[in-house]
Amino acid sequence: MSYPSSNLRNWFDQGGQAYARFRPEYPTELASYLASLAPDRLLAVDVGCGNGQLTRLLAEHFDAVVGFDPSADQIAHTAPQQNVNYACAPAEGLPLLDRSASLITAAQAAHWFDLPRFYAEVHRVAAPSAILALISYGVLRLDGALGERFEQFYWQEIGPYWPAERKLVDSGYATLDFPFAEFPGPDIAIRLEWNLEEFLGYVSTWSAVRSAREAGREDLLHDFAADMAGHWGDPATRHLVSWPINMRIGRV
């Protein structure tokens, strides 16, 4: 079964809802683990929350959760939840009371922050013995020929179009300054089974894809989509896709 060529041409032109639809969800065990570290379950704060992927998982463990993101578009795609509030705010200026947050998280976002100013806010809003967790997920993994073609695309073809901050994500934030009492987290991964549309939809959300299009290199995208379709088999077939979760965790 072949994939219609018109769909391959348009796979990266998903519109504003693609981020909410295709970004991988964090596993519930991540929120459970983070909650187990907090000194109490009163308030969790998710900074750079996007459309609330981690925020809503934390809501299962805390009396109240607040998600902040500087993008009104991201906040507009959050889902209402009884004990969760969302607001537009930068990481460096959180509209929170002093010493109020038991857990502060930043998932796939800290590489965009002005870290010294963000850390100053963390110290201000953190309750005694609060936990700060900077979370990222690593490069997507696929098996076999799919994985080989994806790695070629990621590291060699689309690589030059990533912003410089992306290197921080690829390293699991290992090189970020982290002036807190740090301890290692457990091995946790995101694991999904995706069809071809879901896989290409996820790739379409990358800032590097937008940059490549703006640079007139849509040929890279078309060739990659066609090659992946050829390796995928039936486009409805679901292949295992995984991302290792990296964490910098500290007690404030």
Rank of each mutant, 00 (worst) to 15 (best):
M1L: 13
M1Q: 12
S2H: 13
P4F: 13
S5C: 11
S6E: 13
L8G: 04
N10A: 14
N10P: 01
D13Y: 10
D13W: 05
Q14C: 07
G16Y: 12
R21K: 15
R23T: 11
R23P: 08
Y26S: 04
Y26D: 04
Y33E: 00
Y33L: 02
L34V: 06
D40E: 13
D40N: 14
L42P: 00
V45Y: 03
D46I: 09
G48D: 11
N51A: 13
N51C: 12
G52I: 10
L54I: 08
L57Q: 15
L58D: 02
L58V: 05
A59T: 06
A59E: 10
H61N: 14
H61V: 04
V65M: 11
V65N: 11
G67I: 09
G67H: 09
F68A: 08
P70C: 08
I75M: 09
I75V: 14
A76Y: 03
Q81G: 04
Y86T: 06
Y86D: 02
A87F: 05
C88W: 02
A89R: 07
P90Q: 10
P90N: 13
A91I: 04
A91V: 06
P95Y: 04
L96Q: 12
L97D: 15
D98W: 04
D98M: 04
D98R: 12
D98I: 03
D98S: 14
I104P: 02
A106R: 09
H111Y: 10
H111L: 02
H111T: 02
W112T: 10
F113H: 03
L115M: 12
R117D: 13
F118G: 08
Y119P: 03
A120V: 05
A120E: 13
V122S: 09
H123A: 12
V125R: 05
V125F: 06
A126H: 01
A126W: 01
A127H: 07
A127C: 09
A127Y: 05
S129R: 15
A133D: 04
A133R: 03
L134H: 04
S136Y: 01
R141E: 14
D143S: 15
G144I: 03
E148S: 14
F150S: 01
F153P: 02
Y154V: 01
W155I: 09
I158Y: 00
I158F: 01
I158M: 03
G159S: 12
G159L: 07
Y161C: 00
W162I: 00
P163V: 00
A164E: 14
E165F: 07
R166M: 11
L168A: 14
V169R: 06
D170P: 01
Y173C: 01
D177W: 11
A181M: 12
A181K: 14
E182W: 08
E182C: 12
F183Q: 15
P186H: 06
P186A: 05
I190H: 07
I190G: 03
L192T: 12
E197Q: 14
F199I: 06
L200I: 12
G201N: 11
Y202C: 09
V203F: 10
S204H: 06
W206I: 00
W206T: 00
W206G: 00
S207C: 03
A208R: 00
V209L: 01
R210S: 00
R213G: 00
E214C: 00
R217D: 07
D223Y: 11
A226S: 13
M228P: 01
W232R: 02
G233F: 10
D234R: 09
D234L: 07
D234M: 06
P235Y: 09
H239V: 10
W243A: 02
W243F: 15
N246A: 13
R251S: 11
